[in-house]
Structure formats: C-alpha cells, structure tokens
Design a protein around this nucleic acid. Structure first.
Length: 266
DNA sequence: TATAGTGTTATCGG
DNA sequence: ACCGATAACACTAT
C-alpha cells in the first residue's frame, strides 16, 4: 500500500504531531519488524530523548533524535501505517489508504510503539509485518526521490538498458518512491506500454513519462494516496480504459501484476 | 480453502 | 561485475 505519497503523508504526521515529545517507553519486542536489532536495543537508544525532525527519501522515512541520539528509520513495507495520538488522545494517521480502511482505535497489528511523557504515543501498525524499524538506516543507496528528480537525471534512467520500462521505474536504487500502482498510473498517463524496452523510448515518450511522474506523485499526495489515481479503479478483470473504452490488459511486468490499456499503451 | 498482494532482498542464471 | 527474473518473506482479506 504505501508508496511515496503515503510515506510523505506519514512523515508529515510525525513532523506535525510527534516532534518534541519526550519518549518514556518503547516497545520494540517484535523481532521481525525490528530486525536485525535485538529486543531492547532500540528501546535503550531512544528512552528519554525526543524526536527532532522527520525526513523522507522514496519510501523510506527517518527521524532525528535529541541529545546526539541515533536516527530512527521507519519503513512501512506493504501494509504499514504510522498512527500518532495527540496530547488529547485524538488519533492522527494521515488518511485512509488501507484496502478497507483502518477503524480508529483498531490497533490489533501494532508492531512498534513509542510512548510519550504526555500519555500519547506513536505506533507502527503493520498487519503483514514486512515493514521495519531500524537505528541509523542506510538510505544512501536509494536513487533520487521521485518527487524531486531533475529532468536530466530522469532522462538518464533510460540509457543503455533493455529493461522493461516498469522494471526501471520500480528500481529504488535508480529512482526512489514509485511502487506497483504508481508506475501503472504513470505509464497510463504517458500512454506508454510498461513492457517497452527503455532504450527504445522516444524523446517525446520520455518527456511524457517525466511529466506524468511529477503529476501522478503530486496528485496522489494531494488526493490522499496512490489508490486515488485515475487508472487504479480500472485495474481489474472487465475494466476498461477511462479514456478510450478499450479493455484493460493484465500481465506480469517487472515481476509485478500490471494493467494497461491495450489500445493506447503500445 | 486457495490465492493474490500498493515492498524489499537474497539468489540464480545469462 | 552487471543486470534482470524469480522466490521468499508474514499475514490478511477475498
């Protein structure tokens, strides 16, 4: 679920609601979510500190801590969500992007908790447990953030490779933040097949892809998640392209289930 | 009950 | 060494 737009929203929630509150307890007992740290390791590193700034690159977010403390890395994986309670107990979760939504107060799948001195808390709620919590995460391997990538960098993504377009856009080391749904949305907006070898793309197609990337990312952040994309509701059996009415085609590209308009996206 | 899945990563083969 | 495809990971919803 979480792609760049959801992570940006989560980052903003942390920035607005969690900074400056003293950490008085930490539950890092989920050994899978907190791998490779041992239980208690993250707790010891954070007790007594405050969060001071929230950052993001691609789908990775991280939070600085006070008093020369470690950086707390948070990755939402496939199903993670950050939920913060304000001092008055009201939950802030940055919008509903789970398949069927997360009812307020549904904390069944909490995998990591920071408790603050005012009684509030920050939780990572993650049913599938593919997210992770890490001290001092390495984010240097990530490519440029998809929301801020420069035109030249974007063009260079497609040089000297016969990889399918979708595989290249999903490669987090080359451009960070795009996921399965966002890439389908971008290819559809640009009217390019996700299976096209990238070194065969024309300059006009690359330009359309660059514009579509910026527009799709911006729109998804504003509208509340990648599921608000124009093509997403049509990614299903029997779906038709909302532009020309042609049937949507399903296939596997870059190892992921992919849908595209069989008429426009060639 | 069987299957798919909005992410990442180790492994395998070319 | 690089690159791409694949499977595995953990678990729920359908």
């Amino acid at each position: 679920m979480p792609e760049l737009p959801e992570v940006e929203t989560a980052r903003a929630v942390v920035e607005r609601h969690a900074l400056g509150r003293k950490i008085v307890e930490v539950d890092d007992s989920d050994e899978y979510e907190c791998r490779p740290h041992q239980p208690g390791q993250i707790r010891e590193a954070l007790l007594g500190r405050t969060l001071t700034a929230a950052h993001r690159r691609g789908k990775s977010m991280w939070v600085d801590t006070s008093d020369a403390g470690p950086v707390l890395g948070l990755h939402l994986g496939m199903s993670g969500k950050i939920v913060v309670t304000d001092g008055d107990g009201v939950e802030q979760d940055g919008g509903d992007y789970w398949r069927r939504g997360r009812a307020p107060g549904d904390l069944r799948f909490t995998r990591f908790v920071l408790e603050f001195a005012d009684g509030g808390w920050l939780r990572l709620v993650d049913p599938r447990r593919l997210g992770r919590v890490r001290l001092d995460p390495d984010v240097e391997k990530l490519g440029p953030d998809a929301a801020r990538i420069a035109p030249t960098e974007f063009r260079n993504l497609f040089r000297r490779s016969t990889a399918p377009l979708k595989a290249r856009l999903l490669d987090q080391e080359r451009i960070a933040g795009l996921g399965n749904l966002l890439v389908d949305e971008i290819c559809w907006r640009a009217k390019v097949s996700p299976a096209r070898p990238v070194d065969e793309l024309t300059p006009a197609e690359v330009t359309r892809l660059r514009s579509a990337t910026a527009a799709a990312v911006t729109s998804a952040i504003e509208q509340g998640g990648v599921h608000t994309g124009e093509i997403i509701a049509h990614r299903r059996a029997g779906g038709v392209c909302p532009r020309d009415g042609a049937p949507m085609v399903r296939g596997t590209v870059g190892g992921r289930t992919t849908w595209w308009c069989g008429r426009e996206q060639v």
